[in-house]
Amino acid sequence: MRSHAEFALAPAPGRSRQNRGSEVVRAALLEAAIGEFASRGFAGASGRRIATEAGAHQSQINYHFGSTNELWKAALLFLLDELDQAIAEQLAQLESNEQADQFAAMVRGFVHFASRRPELSRIMMHEGAAPSERLAWFVETQLAHRHRQLLAAWTNLRNSGIAAEVDPDVLYHSMIGAGSLLYANGPEAELLGIQPTDYDLTERHAQSLIALLLPGRNKDF
């Protein structure tokens, strides 16, 4: 039995690949690329496998994205947009303007995103292991400003006595690891009897991470 995603992205019976709408093909290539880059990294990725998974022709990668390198960047931007939306949804539910509550909402949004989309962490595990033009692009255009904002908020929370005594130099990677490794290493977790796709587990995970990072907050979220 095919999944809903597979059903949605497959060509309709009797309909050729060439007749599929341009945006449908682009979306299918993007989703297939996310899975390919997450499982094999950029170096091990195959344009042919991506196209086959998307039900498209390999030449359509260049048509829609220009190159496999640009497809990788588009995949990262797509996932980061989903992450930003997940955090924005949590922030929109707040009735408080307190920075600690906003930080907690950000953490909760990230953990829930990581549970739904472990591919982002898996892609960055591959890419972050060695210098590359892609990694430099990611840090310069996407990560650096997020990192600065995170550290500014953390400094304020530490100065107010709310945040844990975590060194700012290790904060980002500590949060990313603590918030996403369970899902990025989902098969390992399942062998330990843990179900990383369970919503209640993800909620408990988020609450636990918030409690560790913000011991002075003393609020339920």
Rank of each mutant, 00 (worst) to 15 (best):
R2T: 08
S3P: 09
H4C: 05
H4V: 15
A8V: 11
P11H: 11
A12H: 11
A12V: 01
A12F: 01
P13G: 06
G14T: 10
R15S: 09
R17K: 15
Q18L: 08
N19S: 15
G21W: 03
G21H: 12
S22K: 13
V25M: 05
V25D: 05
R26V: 02
A27E: 15
L30H: 03
L30S: 08
L30A: 08
A33I: 00
I34S: 09
E36Y: 01
E36P: 00
E36D: 12
A38G: 06
G41R: 07
A43Y: 02
A45V: 01
S46M: 11
S46N: 06
G47A: 04
R48H: 10
R48I: 09
R48W: 04
R48E: 15
R49Q: 13
A51E: 08
G55V: 01
H57P: 02
H57E: 15
Q58V: 11
S59F: 03
Q60Y: 05
I61P: 02
N62K: 06
Y63D: 13
H64L: 04
F65C: 10
F65E: 02
F65I: 03
N69D: 13
L71A: 02
L71Q: 11
K73M: 12
K73S: 07
A75K: 01
L76W: 03
L76D: 06
L83N: 06
Q85G: 08
Q85S: 12
Q85E: 15
Q85A: 14
A88P: 03
A92I: 06
A92W: 08
Q93E: 15
L94H: 02
E95L: 09
N97Y: 08
E98L: 05
A100S: 12
Q102L: 13
Q102E: 14
A104E: 11
M106E: 12
M106N: 07
R108L: 05
R108K: 12
H112V: 02
A114R: 00
S115M: 14
R117A: 07
P118C: 07
P118T: 06
E119R: 00
R122W: 00
M124V: 03
M124D: 07
E127H: 03
G128Q: 05
A129I: 09
P131M: 06
S132Y: 03
E133G: 10
E133H: 08
R134F: 04
A136T: 13
A136Q: 14
W137K: 02
F138G: 00
V139I: 12
E140T: 13
L143W: 13
H145P: 03
R148K: 12
R148Y: 07
R148G: 09
Q149Y: 02
A152P: 01
W154E: 09
T155M: 11
T155Y: 03
N156K: 14
L157N: 07
G161T: 06
P168Q: 08
D169C: 08
D169W: 03
D169S: 13
D169E: 15
V170A: 14
L171E: 11
L171P: 03
Y172K: 08
G177V: 11
S180T: 05
L181R: 10
Y183W: 09
Y183A: 06
A184D: 07
N185D: 12
G186S: 09
E188N: 04
A189W: 02
L191Q: 14
Q195T: 09
P196M: 04
D198S: 09
T202K: 12
E203C: 03
H205K: 06
Q207W: 01
L212E: 04
L213N: 04
L214T: 04
L214A: 02
P215Q: 10
P215R: 10
R217G: 05
N218A: 10
D220R: 12
